[in-house]
């Protein structure tokens, strides 16, 4: 089984790679994990992870500038229903559009918009650090405890158009989407690769997920 971590120049690629490798190595059938932007390799992957750190528009453009990358993701994820996980901006990219530094269109895979967090002055932006989540019944949260802490760092959030696509939330101080899912496509606003044991559980569950 191959797992492709999409390389479009996002800064935290190494962290994501190492965390997935560490969790996968404990499985009875470890994945062959490749970090790639090659459309052929992406289309032959059994699972796909899209990390993302930075501004929405920059990440989107970086993806569009790699020839065949966006098209190969569409084929794998939309047509072939390959299980997909987006992390942070990689999750926000699933939305229809984002208002970060202008208006940018996203992949449009999960209906919704990406908006700036509005919070009272005493709540610093970015929302940075460990915050607890409340999640609904979903494979991604197997063996996790309600209210456990995950590492967040973001100034924008994914406002889902349909409640059913939000599978976890956090509070800062208003409710913010912490994880989304629609069929074979999931995403987390927090960083599982930086969320210590809790994060490893999410990665493990994604590796075992058969949507």
């Amino acid at each position: 089984m191959n797992l492709a971590i999409i390389n479009f120049g996002s800064g935290n690629l190494h962290s994501v790679h190492k965390a997935f490798e560490s969790v996968s190595s404990d499985l009875s059938n470890p994945y062959n994990i490749i970090v790639t932007n090659d459309p052929k390799e992406i289309q032959s992957a059994d699972k796909i992870v899209l990390p993302g750190v930075g501004a929405f528009g920059d990440c989107k453009n970086a993806i569009l500038n790699i020839e065949g990358l966006h098209a190969s993701l569409e084929v794998s994820v939309i047509k072939n229903k390959v299980p997909f996980m987006g992390i942070c901006v990689g999750m926000q990219l699933l939305a229809d559009l984002s208002y970060e530094f202008g208006t940018h269109s996203g992949f449009g895979w999960i209906p919704g918009e990406v908006r700036r967090i509005t919070s009272p002055k005493e709540y610093k932006i970015p929302h940075m650090g460990w915050n607890e989540i409340a999640f609904s019944d979903h494979k991604l949260f197997d063996n996790c405890e309600q209210g456990s802490d995950f590492y967040f760092v973001h100034s924008f959030y994914f406002q889902n158009q349909k409640n059913e696509h939000s599978i976890a939330t956090t509070k800062y101080p208003d409710q913010i989407t912490a994880a989304v899912c629609k069929e074979n496509i999931c995403g987390t606003q927090f960083h599982p690769e930086k969320s210590h044991i809790n994060g490893k559980k999410i990665i493990h569950n994604f590796l075992e997920w058969k949507p």
Binding site: G11, N12, V53, G54, A55, D58, V89, P126, M128, V153, H154, S155
Partner: peptide, 8 residues
Amino acid sequence: ANKYGSST
């Protein structure tokens, strides 16, 4: 910040 994101 523009290149790597404020979070970085």
